[in-house]
Design a protein around this nucleic acid. Structure first.
Lengths: 227, 227
DNA sequence: GAAAGAATGCTAAAAAGTTACATTTGGTGC
DNA sequence: GCACCAAATGTAACTTTTTAGCATTCTTTC
């Protein structure tokens, strides 16, 4: 399964080298083999973890026992905030995707650290607000927009602002998962977009001949959209 | 329209009297009459606002121009975080609901303040993470659960943990709005719950004779649910 | 206690989404 | 290059939800 790249900012974008070093020094680095479990949903271990090299996949177990990946965690990304600040157990099971090194910082140690270095909690606050905003605007779009528009929104997000055209390599099933509907529904939505020549579908890929036109289409559907 | 109460924590739950005083002193108090507009979607004014007395309603403008309330902001609640930390324009239009006093703190002033008082950004971080967690678990439920189960979940959230039974005063339309479906669909879902004697519907109210039974029903539908 | 307004109930048709199964596509080994 | 297999997409029947209209029931108020 393809997990779409998150283009989000990271802690390291907000912290100076000095602070980062202090932060890293507070943790214990651990290596994981490809596929190895890093944490399990429900685990009580509390603290912040930072991916150093490699990547990890956060997943949930579906009702039928199948494993449903939900996010790709890349170098510089953190997880464990809920356990550290909200006293909640781990909400996802996380696996290493390829050989991966992760730095774990114990809760108490981390809390002491942000006491000493206020920049850390401010950086985390900014990141969390960003994520929050993203969640809210997704929720909002999903309410107001038709499925073709939501698909268009997702496709647009995969392009950099300046790209005029391009091909996205992904299966319809991946899009379906991200949006939270069935593959068939996505297929129909893609048909509708294709009927307006906004996209061209292929086997395992989708070509967008004119990103500007697609954005214009989305704006027509969603006047409030600022994206 | 009834807007469901948020039972969330507030900044004041995390900050000492001293810090709170400093925070309040940094702002300028402003009074609003009932219905007066406090901010408008798109406004560029940056800073944090804290409700002191009264309450405010955050709303969005629907596609048809109708005003759709989306949250009730109560004393102690804050808004404006996105504008302060993410450089985004105001995402909602906010009206005073009854005579309301609000303390506005300018962005630069606020940033200087959290530099001096790290406890503030840490408190905000905790609050934001909490909200984040709520959003994620909602998103998740909505994906996996049938409509009756989602309705049940919403009803359960209205009770305190200890309450064994009770009546919720709300229109089906309010439930529909919160879940994001039509009133008719909610009506049918309520019928299904009523058929299992989990609830009793009334005019503008819903009675839950046994919250434990309702929770049990929800858990049956959603094994992952911890709520 | 009648009238007006508010909320729910009901119906039917259309739209959107799901499930299960069929077909097409692209790679692999020979 | 061809036969085959797995992966990805397409199709069709079915279910859920929406929309929209009107009917009914409940509450408040005069």
């Amino acid at each position: 399964m393809k997990v779409f790249r998150k283009k989000n900012k990271k802690l390291s974008d907000f912290l100076s080298e000095d602070v980062l070093e202090v932060l890293y020094a507070a943790g214990r680095e651990q290596s994981y083999d490809d596929g190895e479990m890093i944490q399990q949903r429900g685990d009580k271990w509390r603290g912040i973890s930072i991916v150093q090299t490699g990547e990890a996949i956060a997943a949930n177990v579906g009702r039928d026992g199948s494993i449903v990946p939900s996010a790709l965690i890349k170098p510089g990304d953190t997880f464990g905030e809920f356990t550290t600040f909200l006293d909640l157990p781990r909400s996802h099971t996380i696996f290493a995707n390829g050989r991966t090194k992760i730095r774990h910082i114990k809760r108490d140690r981390f809390l002491a650290l942000i006491e000493a270095e206020p920049a850390i909690s401010q950086a985390m606050l900014t990141l969390t607000l960003e994520r929050n905003y993203e969640l809210v605007s997704n929720l909002d779009s999903n309410r107001r927009l038709s499925l073709p528009a939501r698909v268009a929104r997702l496709l647009i997000a995969e392009f950099d602002k300046t790209e005029k055209a391009g091909t996205i390599v992904c299966r319809q099933e991946d899009l379906a998962f991200m949006i939270g509907v069935s593959r068939v529904a996505v297929g129909k939505a893609l048909d509708k977009l294709a009927a307006q020549s906004l996209i061209e579908t292929g086997y395992g890929k989708i070509h967008v001949p004119d990103t500007v036109a697609l954005k214009k289409y989305l704006r027509r559907q969603d006047p409030l959209s600022s994206t």
